[in-house]
Amino acid sequence: MTSIFIHVDPEKCQGHARCKALAPELFELDEFGNAREALSGCVPPELVDKAYVAQANCPEEAIVIRSASRL
């Protein structure tokens, strides 16, 4: 299985925190409620589905998912 990484674009994130609600293991919130990636953006295999659910539910489309081979 290919490793995937997440990135939250700070210019797009508006602090809805849906990602944190859906995948708390993968996202952290700053003091303003804006999201950033946890775990250095590395998504463990057992959390890949959660990463895609969080991405699909981001109203600002601020979450980018990349495979390790496309970094």
Rank of each mutant, 00 (worst) to 15 (best):
D30L: 05
A17P: 06
R36D: 11
R70A: 15
G15F: 00
N34D: 13
V43A: 09
S40I: 01
M1P: 09
L71C: 11
K50D: 15
S40R: 09
L22R: 02
S3C: 03
I4H: 00
D9E: 05
S67N: 07
S67Y: 05
L71T: 10
A62W: 00
P59T: 01
S69Y: 03
V48T: 12
V43N: 09
S69E: 03
A23P: 08
H7F: 14
A62V: 00
G33D: 10
D30T: 08
L22F: 06
S3G: 09
V53L: 12
L39G: 06
H16F: 15
A23C: 10
L29M: 10
I4A: 01
L71N: 11
V53T: 13
F27W: 08
N34R: 15
C42R: 12
C19T: 02
M1F: 07
S40W: 07
C19W: 01
R70D: 15
P44A: 03
V53F: 04
Q14T: 13
E28V: 06
C58T: 03
L47R: 07
K20W: 13
S67G: 03
Q55S: 12
Y52E: 07
A23L: 09
S40L: 08
V64G: 02
A54K: 11
D49N: 08
A17E: 15
A21D: 15
C58G: 05
L29G: 08
S3Q: 14
D9N: 15
Q14K: 14
E11S: 12
E37F: 10
A17C: 12
S40K: 11
R36A: 11
F32A: 14
K50M: 10
G33T: 11
E25P: 04
F32K: 13
L47W: 06
C19H: 03
K20V: 13
R36Y: 11
P10T: 09
A35F: 02
I6E: 00
R66G: 09
A62Q: 00
V48Y: 03
E28S: 07
H16R: 15
A62K: 00
F5W: 09
A54I: 10
Q14H: 10
S69K: 06
E28M: 07
A68I: 04
P59Q: 00
I4Y: 01
R66S: 13
L29D: 08
V43I: 12
C42N: 07
I4E: 00
E61C: 10
L29P: 05
L71H: 10
R70E: 15
A38D: 13
N57W: 01
I6T: 01
N34I: 07
E46L: 00
E31P: 01
P44K: 02
E37G: 12
Y52I: 02
F32T: 14
N57V: 01
Q14P: 02
G33W: 06
F32W: 14
R66A: 12
V8A: 02
E11V: 05
K50P: 04
D49A: 11
S40E: 14
R66Q: 13
E28C: 05
F5M: 04
E11F: 04
H7E: 15
I4Q: 02
Q55I: 07
P45M: 04
P44E: 06
E37K: 12
